[in-house]
Simulated assay, not measured.
Amino acid sequence: MRFRHTEDNGIPTIDLIPMLTVMMGVLAFFVVVSVSLGSEELIQVDLPPEQTEETPNDTDSVQDPFVVEMDETGQRLLNGNPIEPETLAIEIESYLAQNADSIVYLIPSRQLPYEQVVQFLGDMRAVGGERVSLALREDS
């Protein structure tokens, strides 16, 4: 049995187009991910210190707290009554101006999406600054 021997002395060619296509796809993926992650704003959350027996209970010192609630539908409630966001901003400003050491509390419903709660907390912090805090009700 005889085999044909062909002499191929030519230089092999490498097709770079598929490799460049893959590299451009990977680059586009990382650009899109980095742009989408860079647009998120972070809200600083300061957790209270852990209660020990030596730590005095601060619940006795809090008098007449300013509590804003959000129900399951996202409606804002002040003292159980619905309130518009513009009116609420004015109420927060006047309360904090009259009470220098007081804090405004936001108590959202647990059924609300996290993004909606954080957005509203950010809006409240734009008005009240660091004196606005997120609070949760304990389920009995």
Rank of each mutant, 00 (worst) to 15 (best):
G80H: 11
T55V: 15
N9H: 14
T6Y: 08
V26K: 06
E115K: 01
R110M: 12
P108Q: 01
E93P: 03
S109F: 03
E40P: 00
S61W: 10
D101G: 15
T73H: 09
V35T: 08
A89Q: 02
L47F: 12
I103T: 15
S94W: 00
P108F: 02
A28Y: 04
P113W: 02
S102N: 07
S36G: 01
I11E: 14
F120W: 04
T59Q: 13
F66R: 00
V67Q: 02
R2D: 15
F66K: 04
R131F: 04
V132D: 04
V33A: 15
G10L: 11
M70F: 11
D71T: 11
E84N: 08
I103M: 13
V117G: 05
Q98H: 07
E69M: 06
V132Q: 00
P65N: 07
Q119C: 00
Q98G: 10
A97I: 06
Q75I: 11
T52H: 13
L42P: 00
M1E: 06
D46T: 12
L134Q: 05
F3P: 03
P48T: 05
R76E: 06
S36E: 08
D64M: 08
I90T: 13
H5E: 06
N9E: 09
V62E: 11
T13D: 10
N79E: 13
R76M: 14
E72K: 12
G74L: 12
F3N: 14
E84G: 01
Y105N: 04
